[in-house]
């Protein structure tokens, strides 16, 4: 049961008619004014409803399980039940913090990655192809590593390799405006380069409005004739759905 309003979002993400993200990397970017967390919620819901054997490994750095559980329940997906069915793996990294000295922090990320890999390997053979790995805040990874972008990049690259090794989908959220004034924003640049699908959420240039919560830009890199496919539309977030529409088409 898909909501009619979300069709535009699905269509632009390339999720209509049983397509999915497996084997691809989706990067979601947002700003202080416009959070794009709803895109993650939408993809989560879509993943669980699209395929009976799909599973999600969720690396939570910014919010608790109960937060996501309540939100997804309103959309129509019971995360607690999925967790009990071993389809939703919630890795709580809220307090993830590596000590400041030497090599130890690298081992920290290695441990997280090992955990992801063992989770995938433990899945039945059929389910292994339908795994989604989701990170709800890349910027917090850098904080956990005391600002070392190299370690974060290593970790993200490792996660990215899973898309080709096991055919997983990799979905990650980052904040665009953090890096605007940095000399060498290597994390965001490299991630944008790797991304197969890039989703950018921005506020309207005219400021906040009740009926339009912001605009989404979706870039899909196609390895064919046309290099990049761009969709641009407005959205309004509701408790149980996302309403998407082209500028000026909403009555």
């Amino acid at each position: 049961m898909e909501h009619k309003e979300a069709n535009l979002l699905n269509e632009s993400l390339g999720l209509d008619s049983n397509n999915n993200f497996y084997g691809r990397f989706v990067l979601v970017e947002d700003t202080v004014d416009t959070s794009a967390a709803f895109v993650l919620h939408h993809i989560l819901n879509r993943t669980f409803s699209s395929h009976p054997s799909s599973s999600v490994i969720f690396l939570a750095l910014s919010n608790t399980f109960s937060h996501y559980d309540r939100i997804l329940r309103k959309i129509g997906c019971n995360l607690a039940a999925q967790r009990d069915n071993n389809r939703f793996f919630f890795i709580d990294l809220l307090m993830l913090q590596f000590p400041d000295e030497g090599k130890s922090k690298h081992n920290g990320f290695a441990a997280v990655f090992e955990k992801i890999e063992t989770l995938i390997k433990a899945l039945p053979q059929d389910n292994m192809k339908c795994v989604t790995i989701m990170i709800d805040d890349i910027s917090f990874l850098q904080l956990a590593a005391n600002g070392s972008s190299d370690h974060v990049l290593d970790f993200l690259h490792y996660c990215y390799t899973l898309t080709s090794e096991y055919g997983c989908a990799f979905v990650a959220l980052d904040h665009r405006d953090i890096y605007l004034n940095e000399d060498k924003p290597d994390i965001i640049l490299e991630m944008e380069h790797l991304a197969d699908v890039l989703v950018k959420a921005e506020p309207l240039a005219t400021g906040l409005a009740k009926d339009v919560h912001g605009q989404l830009m979706v870039f899909i890199k196609q390895h064919g004739i046309s290099p990049v496919k761009i969709h641009n539309f407005h959205f309004k977030i509701k408790e149980n759905s996302i309403e998407c529409f082209y500028p000026g088409t909403k009555i």
């Binding site: 202080v32 004014d33 416009t34 959070s35 967390a37 709803f38 919620h41 109960s66 937060h67 309540r70 939100i71 309103k74 906040l208 409005a209 009740k210 919560h213 977030i237 509701k238 408790e239």
Partner: peptide
């Protein structure tokens, strides 16, 4: 007011005036 807490919900709080 730049941002209002939205715990347990995905809907942003849009104020009449900020």
């Amino acid at each position: 007011v730049h941002k209002v807490a939205r715990l347990n919900t995905q809907v942003p709080v849009i104020l009449e005036a900020t």
